[in-house]
Each structure stands twice: as C-alpha cells, then as structure tokens.
Design a protein around this nucleic acid. Structure first.
Ligand SMILES: [Mn+2]
Ligand SMILES: [Mn+2]
Ligand SMILES: [Mn+2]
Ligand SMILES: [Mn+2]
Lengths: 219, 219
DNA sequence: TAAAAAGTTTAGACGAGTCTAAAAAATTAT
DNA sequence: ATAATTTTTTAGACTCGTCTAAACTTTTTA
C-alpha cells in the first residue's frame, strides 16, 4: 500500500524515465516534484526498500517491474478521471489536470472498473494520451511531432504534450486545434522553424517551432 | 484550508453534535474516529485555534457557525459522490460509503458544481439522507422511525440510519426494503417490539425492534 | 590532472498526526 | 464529604514528509 506521496513520486519517476527506459537523477525528480534534492534522496530510499525502484547512490534510480505496474495503474486512474471530467462533466481539457492529480489516488479497484465501463473503455484521455488497460498494457499507434512531418501533407492531431501549464492548451483551443483536427501543412519557415497550417480546411495560422514540437500527429 | 484529517474530525463532531445542537465529549469523538482520547485532545485544540469549534477543557466541544458551514460542505460532497456511484456507476447502496469517505476530500468547487448538475441536483443520497445545497441549507421533510408509527397504517420508506457496517443495508435489500418502498404495518409484538410488515403489498416479513428503529418513514 | 563547479547525500530539525503512560480533573459511590 | 472510579489532559515518543546546512562524490574546466 503506497501513500499519496509515494504514488506521486513513483509516477514522476515513471514519466521522467520514459516509461522505465532510462535512469533518473535526483535533481530531475526534485524539479519535477517541486521539492528539494534531500527530500528526494529520502523518498527514493523508501521506494527502493519497497522494490519499486533500484537506487544507486549518486547515480540515480531505475524503475522495477513492480514499480512500472504500480505507476501505470496510477496513470490509468489519472487518465480515466480526466476522460470522465471532460466527457461527462463538460470540463475543458485545460481544467482537468489538477483535479485528476487528486482523484488518481482514490483507492477502489471496483470504482475504476465501473468508471472504465461507464466511459465505454476509452483508449485515450482528453489530451490524446493512451489509457493503460487494467493489465497495464498501453496500445498506441505511431505519433510524430508536427514539426517533423516531412513535406506538405495533411495530418490528424493525435495528442498534445501537456506540461505544467494549461496555457498551451488554451492557446490550441483558441486557434482551433483539438484532438482529431486535420492539419494541412502549407509552408515551413527555415529561419525560425515556424509552420503555416490550415486547420480543418478552414483556418490558416502560423504555429511556432515550440508549439509544433508539442502537437503530435499521424506520421 | 483543512487537512484530510481535520475534515474527518470536523465531520464527526458535526454528526455527533446532531448538527451543532449539543456539545460533544472527547471520548465520543475518539470512539467515532477510532483513535485515542489523547489524539482527540490534540486535534480539538487545532480545530479550536481555527475557530471551527469551541473547546472547553474537560467539558467537550461545540461546533461554530464556520465549523458547521465547513462540515456541511464535506457532507454535501460525500452525499453527492454516493449518489453518483449508485446512479451512474451502478454501485449498490452498501458499497458506496468507504469510497465516498475518500472522494469527499477532493478539493474542487467546480467539480462539485458540475457533479451536482450532472446528477440533476439530487436532494437525497442513496440512503435517503438529505444533500445540503451549495449554501449548506438542508431541506428535509418529517421523518419518524418505523417503530414509532402509531397504529397500523401504510408508510413510505424515506431513509435508513446507516452506521459503520453495511450489513444492515444488505439485510434490507434482502428482505425487499428500499428508499420509496411502501410498508403496511400489520402487527406489533409487545414483548420484543418486533413488527410485522407487508412490503409493497407483496411480501410479509417480521422486522426486529432494532431494525425498525433504523428505518425512517413518512409520519 | 588538479582545481573548481555541480550534484548528491547526510545530519539534524520541524510540523502533522498518532500513540502510551502518567498526571489531573470531574463524576460517582460509599 | 471523602474515597474510588472514570474521563480527560499532558508529557514524551514515534513515523512521515519536508527543509537547511554541511559533507561528500562526481563531473567539468583549465
Ligand atoms: Mn497526484
Ligand atoms: Mn492527460
Ligand atoms: Mn473522509
Ligand atoms: Mn449516505
């Protein structure tokens, strides 16, 4: 049984390690969790004692099989709740993260099972992020950042990289980008990496390199 | 901003004081919270410092105006979540309490506002308990325990007194009693206070004094 | 490759919430 | 009205999660 705090650390380590594929340094965790490195050291010792991560002094942590399983379950809950908030309660996609950050810690397997069913077994959350199934399996198709699309074809928005701030999401809504939107690439500016796109065949806009790196589309 | 623990204490004190109408002793709180009296003393000092209760050494605590408001908000959330679990996720009425005990602490006024709307502004939870409105106002009609119904009339089940255990709720389901059921009082046994009732004009059963005290009906 | 810088851990402290054991106050029984 | 009993509070300790300051290790720079 993990505490709320342990769950948050474990999830952060999972994300920082790209799903367990690389090791994570103390300072990275401290940054992500907005705590001090000393606090992280204490916590990684605890998670390590619980066999959820392996910890080598001065060289960072790696997530274990069990750690991955537990992290994925928290992520599953987080994303199911986000989906509920948007689909059933009409939250906007930039309003859900903080609430889901709380809801993900509710302990009730039955609740999650029933919520999943109520939502009709969704495969992606409002930001296009895959929802792990009850066995922790993630099935995602290929996604590439808009800035890496070769040539001038038309692509579909699959997901957005959403960090702390919700202002990027608000910006996307404002210009008309949403999950499923069709983006026709019209032009690419060499000097600043910005791209001119046509959204749903209706609206022409320029998006910065920064933005186009965080819009994930069909390859 | 109250901690989860403070919220649970405050709610317990609210309930033990019958909504603020009487003062509550340290040992009663300790019993209700399954903690030790020494822990209660510590906590009531904190709640008293926050002006949510008044505390007189050796003579127990009384809830303040603000304390009542805060307690009612937690109760509102608890009951809205219970309603959600039963109406939308098909939980049984004996499965919701523990989960709602967690969900009631989620901090998001927007969430509660939208949940209330999603549920169509319910006025009672699955156990027939009134849901305070967003201003903390409770509107309940008259309710009396089944055992106190005079004569042999037919009454409607309005609510059930549900304590820790869910086994009473399971028992009620088993014999066919639910919120809204019509109970015709057929006979009352003097010697043990048990009552013979006909449920929905279909099923005859005997209920104990103990049970009939915890079934609240129309007067 | 030695010095400087950056990153990490340890040591010690603190607040929240809990406990046990002992002291104090209130209640009750004699 | 005093003694016995019950209730409540205090004192001191413990865990969890956090912090700062100091010590230590690794990495970078010159
Ligand atoms: Mn969280
Ligand atoms: Mn998301
Ligand atoms: Mn609770
Ligand atoms: Mn209830």
């Amino acid at each position: 049984m993990l505490s709320l705090t342990e769950e948050n650390y474990l999830k952060a380590i999972y994300h920082l390690s790209d799903g367990g594929s690389k090791s994570v340094l103390t300072n990275e965790v401290a940054d992500a969790m907005s705590t001090k490195p000393a606090s992280v050291t204490d916590m990684v010792k605890k998670l390590s004692a619980k066999k959820l991560i392996t910890y080598e002094k001065y060289y960072g942590v790696t997530i274990t099989k069990q750690g991955k399983t537990d992290a994925l379950n928290i992520i599953r809950k987080h994303r199911l709740w986000e989906t509920f908030l948007v689909q059933k309660l009409n939250f906007h996609w930039d309003q859900v993260h903080e609430v889901a950050e709380q809801l993900e810690h509710i302990q009730s397997p039955l609740l999650i099972e029933k919520l999943d069913e109520f939502l009709n077994f969704p495969v992606a959350d409002p930001h296009g992020h895959p929802i792990p199934d009850k066995n922790g399996k993630i099935h995602t198709g290929q996604q590439i950042p808009l800035c890496e699309v070769p040539g001038k074809k038309t692509v579909t928005v699959l997901a957005v990289n959403v960090k702390e701030s919700s202002s990027f999401l608000q910006y996307l809504s404002k210009i008309g980008v949403y999950i499923g939107a069709k983006l026709a690439i019209l032009d690419k500016a060499e000097f600043d990496g910005s791209i001119e796109i046509m959204i749903d065949g209706k609206k022409k806009v320029f998006v910065s390199k920064e933005a186009s790196q965080n819009i994930l589309v069909t390859p």
